[in-house]
Design a binder for these strands. Structure first.
Lengths: 342, 342
DNA sequence: GTTAGCACTCGGTATATGTGAGTGCTAACT
DNA sequence: AGTTAGCACTCACATATACCGAGTGCTAAC
């Protein structure tokens, strides 16, 4: 879709004014906001054309125009000038996500928190689950006569743990055979290979302790399943309650966010460096009045994960996109550095 | 405060009708709902007295009455007949919180979920932190050349873990001295003894590895702090968005619930078998339109923790209190059984 | 002590009316 | 041909007015 320069200028002005004020933008008020050597009548004609092209919408006949999701899309793709990241915001981000912040998990937590804070939106983050992930290590730490903590570490650095109750006492000999069995049969195997069926044959092979072993191995199976699922961190959901345009469906939206699966679905859609999904572009109905901005970070030049935000469609794209981008890059750098030191 | 039988009957009817309909209750409509051999004028007189006693309120002069928080309180303490738990609900609870559900943590999670579901409120749960808790065990599982997972187990059964980055490589000799140091100096000590100052002297004592040791011990300190803090699980917050009386302050309420500390504060208030806090009785302003129902469960005849719910003041106390009670008792029984087997 | 009766209150709904920011269209003007 | 002044028209929103009805408190009679 090719637009004349004048149309571009008008569309951009409409989007920006609407983002700022939240009110439908009329031809006359547009000229106040963005003076041009044009009469309102001309603007009106142009706006009418932009409407028929599907880039602008009218809430009702005698109101001003608001951008349609296609309008936002055109703006984001072609018109938006990315504003420089505000110095204060940058400092804020850097402060929250400092290098000393230990492991990847807590770094992502921090990143989500700060993003939710500075943007007043909900923040999501998720580390990519490598399909090629193999089990690097399995540990069992007994924490009672019949309970133990199982720890599973993958080659991609994902760490999961879980308390597990065995069906009988965890004797030193059971510990030993658990160690033997897992290191012989599981370490080095891809996560998807771990399932209850293989566990059963494995457990059977140890003989007398088979029954207790099975419950432990079942725990390992659950861990492996956990480790191969995206887990999405979510922050600042309640921020979304402040937007009038979202509050009519507040409950639905919150419930949607609470459930992990659809969110996991969304972040895995983020294949590019930066993705923006506007309103109805989202495949989930619950997000039809929301926009999602997601960016990937990479660790050692490999795909690391996604950090993004969810807000109303009427959101300051020009300002927030650089924030998300800056944060993901920073997280990527920090994790890369941590990995190199390791 | 002593009330005549007739006043009691009228108060109970007002509370029950208001809980059911959500509309202020007038003298005439009350008689429809609860036929009595009285005229509406008499009811009116009684209501006026109940109002002046502070048990009923009028939203505006010419409207019906609604219970004040004192009115609810009187109802809950003196008038309410506890209804039997619905068979379906009981089955639902039992199903969700079955014995096989592993460790205490996940059991509480499940309990919170089911409670939020059946009550349509927010559910909270928290295990009591024993002040007498001492460190039972500390484990370190290396998960990288410089990172390790620290695991801390207390005598009260609380288990915490954390990833920790050491300042230098984690050599077998470091692991060994970590094991020696912690088992000699920390195991058996109460949680509150663990602080950075003592860690520094401890670290210094190991000689050459002091620096790396310190970062590990700092991790242990954090774990100990974690373990001695109540951690409150929260479920079904979004359920509260469905109540009109709460939705004006939805954002505030959600933010309040999101923050852990005030919630921790609230559950630790639950000293009795069953506590109900109604509206303004809550010390937090954010809950002035909410009621909190909390019950304790015990494990092996010792205080185990609290499970409760947060809803609007206009809530079916007679129905929900038994649900909470049943759930806590069940959880207590299951945990006791699990502990005995252990 | 109870109740019928009555004047009064007041939120909610309905109706009319005006206001103003917006529109589209046409005809005149560069 | 593109631009613009002008104009009739639209429609959400605000304000005023009236009315309804479920509620009240109070009084006087039962």
């Amino acid at each position: 879709m090719e637009l004349s320069d004048r149309k571009k200028k008008i569309l951009a002005a409409v989007v920006e004014q609407y983002i700022k004020t939240g009110e439908p933008v009329g031809s006359k008020s547009l000229l106040e906001y963005q003076p041009m050597s044009l009469s309102s009548a001309t603007v009106r004609n142009e706006m009418a054309e932009l409407s028929s092209m599907g880039l602008l919408e009218q809430p009702h006949t005698s109101a001003g125009r608001i951008p349609s999701h296609k309008g936002y899309r055109y703006y984001v793709d072609n018109l938006m000038g990315r504003t420089e990241l505000d110095e204060k915001v940058r400092k804020h981000i850097e402060n929250a996500v400092s290098e000393k912040s230990g492991d990847a998990d807590s770094l992502l937590s921090r990143a989500g928190e700060v993003l939710a804070n500075i943007t007043n939106c909900a923040a999501v983050s998720a580390a990519t689950v490598g399909e090629s992930a193999v089990i690097k290590r399995i540990e069992m730490v007994p924490v009672g006569t019949r309970t133990a903590m199982l720890v599973l570490l993958t080659s991609t650095g994902i760490l999961k743990s879980k308390i597990c109750r065995a069906d009988s006492e965890i004797t030193p000999s059971l510990s030993e055979s658990f160690y033997n069995v897992t290191s012989a049969a599981l370490v080095g195997r891809p996560l998807c290979d771990v399932n209850l069926a293989t566990m059963q044959t494995l457990a059977a092979s140890v003989g007398c302790d088979a029954f207790a072993m099975l419950s432990l191995l079942a725990g390992v199976t659950e861990l492996a399943r956990d480790a191969s699922q995206v887990d999405v961190r979510l922050d600042g959901q309640s921020n979304l309650l402040n937007y009038v345009e979202l509050e009519q469906n507040a409950y639905e939206l919150m419930e949607f966010l609470r459930k992990g699966e659809p969110l996991g679905d969304i972040v895995t859609l983020n294949k590019n460096d930066l993705d923006v999904l506007i309103g109805k572009e989202n495949k989930y109905r619950q997000l039809e009045h929301s926009s999602v901005i997601m960016a990937r970070y990479s660790v050692k030049n490999q795909d690391g994960g996604t950090i993004g935000l969810i807000g109303p469609t009427r959101i300051d794209y020009a300002k927030l996109i650089p924030s998300v981008k800056y944060l993901t890059d920073l997280v990527g750098r920090i994790l890369t550095k941590a990995l190199e030191e390791d």
